[in-house]
Write a protein that binds this DNA or RNA. Sequence first.
DNA 1: ATAACTGTAATAGTAATGTTAATACAGATA
DNA 2: TATCTGTATTAACATTACTATTACAGTTAT
Lengths: 127, 127
Amino acid sequence: MLELDVKSRVPIYEQLVEKIKELIIMEVLKEHEQLPSVRSLASELTINPNTIQKAYRELENQGYIYSIPGKGNFVAPINKNKKLEKVNKLKEELKRLILEAIYLGITKEELMELYDSVNKEIKEGRR
Amino acid sequence: MLELDVKSRVPIYEQLVEKIKELIIMEVLKEHEQLPSVRSLASELTINPNTIQKAYRELENQGYIYSIPGKGNFVAPINKNKKLEKVNKLKEELKRLILEAIYLGITKEELMELYDSVNKEIKEGRR
DNA sequence: ATAACTGTAATAGTAATGTTAATACAGATA
DNA sequence: TATCTGTATTAACATTACTATTACAGTTAT
């Protein structure tokens, strides 16, 4: 569920943050659902507990989870603004790529084809 | 022309490589055109000559430029396969983002709107 | 030929950052 | 009481990018 790339330039804790954000926004993780404990997740992923804690701390700062000392970390109940935030961020990224694409001569039609091919892959369950 | 972000996670030499690649593919830099010397570019950007050299070396390895010791570094005369490579890479990136976008509920129409807005900006000379 | 450019090379040092390791303490719970 | 949980702290390690410095050789113009 949480696949990490230890050789990546982006640090492990940040990969974790992004992956877990994703799960929360996609509502794979539900409100108030408990996350794996710092230690258990660390041993499962065979990385240091400090790294997990750093990720959880960051998620808490960003309002995605809340923690109860002694009990655990839980999914925060907000999700609406967060989703909008995410959508806007994604759109900005898309615009950046589209700009470059246009300069490289990629047409609107080609972009639509890309959309369709991805959409098809999803429907066929290949993702 | 070459704007660097020293605070970025991606290293300076790699930013340089990408920017210069871009200029070559867009044919802003023409075949056999001489690039700034290692030392002059270094002093212009106020970074170390070694960093420039590392970028040039990388560009040479990737076939974008060639160097003549004692003379300088020059734009290589290939550009066709390189452009295709770049386009394909960009399309892969786009697919990745589109996949995420679909999961977040972004429609094909919204994507088209993004394309149009970027296109409009270009035409209006805002880019 | 000399000076002033070019690229290339090697080495050492510095700085930042992520990660690990080891402990410790306190709240929660069975 | 034992065993979970989160939290905190400190030190050490590893990697990497970048800088600094010096040196050598080819090119070119004066």
